[in-house]
Each structure stands twice: as C-alpha cells, then as structure tokens.
C-alpha cells in the first residue's frame, strides 16, 4: 500500500549559516498511512513540532525527502508547497492562533480566501465545518468572547474547512483540563472514523494512551528513537 505521507532521512536545520544553527530534525524516516492516527511523542525540544512542519508542508527540509500522496514536495517552490498544504492538510496549533478581532465565522473562513470559490460555496463549507465542531450558534461571536475549549473548536473548524485529508495537531491538550481533553479526543476519534488521517504531536499520556491512536513515534533530539503500536 502506498503511504499517504513518507519522509526519507529528512533533516531540518534552522539558521544554517549562523552561529545559532540548530538541527531540529536529524534524519528521520517514517510514514503515515491513509486513515491512520499517529502520535509523535517526546519531551519538548525533541523536534516534534519541526517534524510536523515538514510533514505538513509548512517548510522544506534542509536535506532528505518528503513525499505526500506520492508526490515529492521537498523541492517544490514555496508557492506550490502552499498549495499542497492548503489542499491536503488542516492544522490545529498549540496556541490556536485565531485572529482575535474577527468573528468565529471569519476566522474559520481564512483558509478559503486564496481558493477560487463562490461566496455560496465558501458559506456552505464554513457552515459545515462549524456544524462539525458544534459551534453553529456562536458563528457571529468574536473569538475573544469564547472559552479556551471553544476557541480550540474554532481552530479545529478552521482546520477542517478546506476538507483536508490529514489533520495535524500540535499539543492539542496543552491548554485543556482532563475532562475537556477527553471530549477533544472523542472528537478526534469521530474524525478518524470519518476517514481523516491524524498526526498529533504530544507528550500528554492521556493522548497517546487513547484507543484511537494506531502508532506512536518517539523522538529524542531530533532523532527517531522508538516506533511501535499503541
């Protein structure tokens, strides 16, 4: 079976020419199959977030290859990388990164602006994404008026609005109590059921021990140190 995402000896060095050059990812080979839920586990600074960036086409590797849906993206110009990212991935950031002055609806709509969609189609997709996270009633509210959990649901709706194949989440439970974490994981499980592939970076045991997780990849200092089933 062809994996959805594959990395081959992928490395990422930030500020390569400067004194503070840091190798965040040092030669990782891994793959994610379609419909799978994979957890990247490791202490902070182990390169989880950087690997997520590479896998999710946020950035290009310094060396090595990243292959998404059978196409090598590691050498694509930024413009096309953005296109692949927008069409294939949805991101839920650790800090949510919503624009505080905008309403829930407008925040969710952000990824749709660069696409050539009609206003109707945009409205339809936003409504669908909001329904998915049960926020339809709050669509006109400003995101600053919402609670932390609700804000995260807005972030998830924004990640889903482009109808992606892969949902990437970075420390999704970092700002949630255990009750809300459970709710979130249930939501992820439902999304997985619906066919979405999940890649989650976390060091929260509640996440990587959850039954929805198929595989755990453990990272340490930018290297892969253990890989196995949940």
């Amino acid at each position: 079976m062809n994996p959805l995402i594959r990395t081959e000896e992928v490395c990422k060095t930030y500020h390569p020419r400067k004194a503070d050059a840091t190798q965040a990812v040092a030669g990782i080979t891994m793959q994610v199959a379609s419909g799978e839920a994979v957890v990247l586990k490791g202490p902070s600074g182990s390169g989880k977030t950087s690997l997520l960036s590479l896998v999710g086409c946020m950035t290009r590797p310094t060396s090595g290859r990243v292959i998404v849906t059978g196409e090598e993206v590691s050498r694509l110009p930024e413009r096309f990388l953005t296109l692949v990212r927008r069409r294939t991935f949805g991101f839920v950031f650790q800090q949510y990164h919503l624009i505080p002055e905008l309403s829930v609806r407008d925040n969710v709509m952000l990824p749709l602006y660069p696409e050539r969609l009609s206003a109707n189609e945009m409205g339809r997709r936003v409504a669908a994404a909001l329904a998915e996270v049960e926020l339809t009633g709050l669509a006109r509210r400003r995101v600053t008026e919402l609670s932390g959990g609700e804000q995260q649901r807005v972030a998830i709706a924004r990640a889903l609005v482009n109808e992606p194949r892969v949902l990437i989440a970075d420390e999704p439970t970092a700002h949630l109590d255990s009750r809300l974490s459970t709710v979130l994981l249930e939501r992820f499980a439902a999304l997985k059921q619906a066919g979405l592939t999940l890649v989650i970076a976390t060091h929260d045991p509640q996440v990587y021990t959850h039954p929805l997780v198929d595989r755990i990849i453990e990272l340490h200092d930018g290297r892969l140190c253990k890989e196995g089933g949940a």
Partner: peptide, 14 residues
Amino acid sequence: NPDGAEADQLSLER
C-alpha cells in the same frame, strides 16, 4: 539552483 541549499533557495524564491 533548484538543487542547492534549501535556505538559500528559499530566500531567492522570496
């Protein structure tokens, strides 16, 4: 140089 160092190429693209 499309095969050159990623960081350099990125800054050229920009």
